[in-house]
Computed example of a mutant assay.
Amino acid sequence: MINHSDPRPPDDADADAGVDSEGADADSVVYRRSDGESPAHSVVQAVAEATQRDPTELRPLYEVIDTDALDDLIDGGSERVQAPDELRIDFQFEGCQVAVYADGRTVASRPTSAPR
């Protein structure tokens, strides 16, 4: 699991839900976008890590979501300001639940298998 530090204190609601301060549980990967990295690119990186696959083995992200719209919503386009940090976009990609946050996090969660 990639877990980059977040200076914010954990949210009590996250603790109750069994997730850490990054918004992830034990079956999740938290990816922090670097400066200039697009949110769409971070989705591919996080899902590749969560599924233990090479990013080039994943189907194209644009088949699931409009990557330009995702990038514009999260980072803001040239015509508007960046989204508030609490904005979150959720969708499924390659068997993972993905949450892209405006604060720079991308969380990819693998489904947990039911106990036998």
Rank of each mutant, 00 (worst) to 15 (best):
P9T: 15
P7M: 06
E79I: 03
A15N: 01
Q92S: 15
A46C: 12
A108V: 11
L58V: 12
D11F: 08
G18N: 10
R59M: 09
D25V: 06
R88H: 00
V100Q: 11
A83M: 00
D66P: 06
D68W: 07
D12H: 02
D75N: 11
T56N: 11
T106L: 08
A24G: 14
A99F: 00
L87N: 12
T106W: 05
A48S: 15
A13Y: 03
A114T: 04
R8I: 06
P7C: 11
A108N: 15
V44Q: 02
R8Q: 14
D103S: 09
D66L: 02
Y31E: 07
T51M: 13
A40P: 04
Q45P: 01
D14K: 08
E57K: 05
D14G: 10
P115F: 03
V107D: 06
E57C: 01
P115G: 05
N3A: 13
P9N: 14
E37D: 10
R33D: 05
G18D: 11
D68F: 06
V81R: 03
Q45L: 12
V100N: 05
S28P: 06
A17S: 14
D35I: 09
D90M: 02
M1Q: 10
D75R: 07
R116K: 07
I2Y: 06
D16H: 11
P60C: 00
L58W: 03
Y31N: 02
I2T: 09
C96I: 11
A40S: 12
Y31F: 08
Q82P: 00
L87Y: 08
F93H: 15
R88W: 00
D14F: 08
N3F: 02
D75C: 04
P39M: 09
D72A: 11
A17M: 10
D14R: 08
Q97H: 14
R8L: 14
Y62H: 15
S21G: 13
V19K: 13
I74K: 01
V100S: 13
E63F: 00
R53T: 06
P9F: 14
D35W: 04
R80F: 07
F91R: 09
G23H: 01
A50F: 05
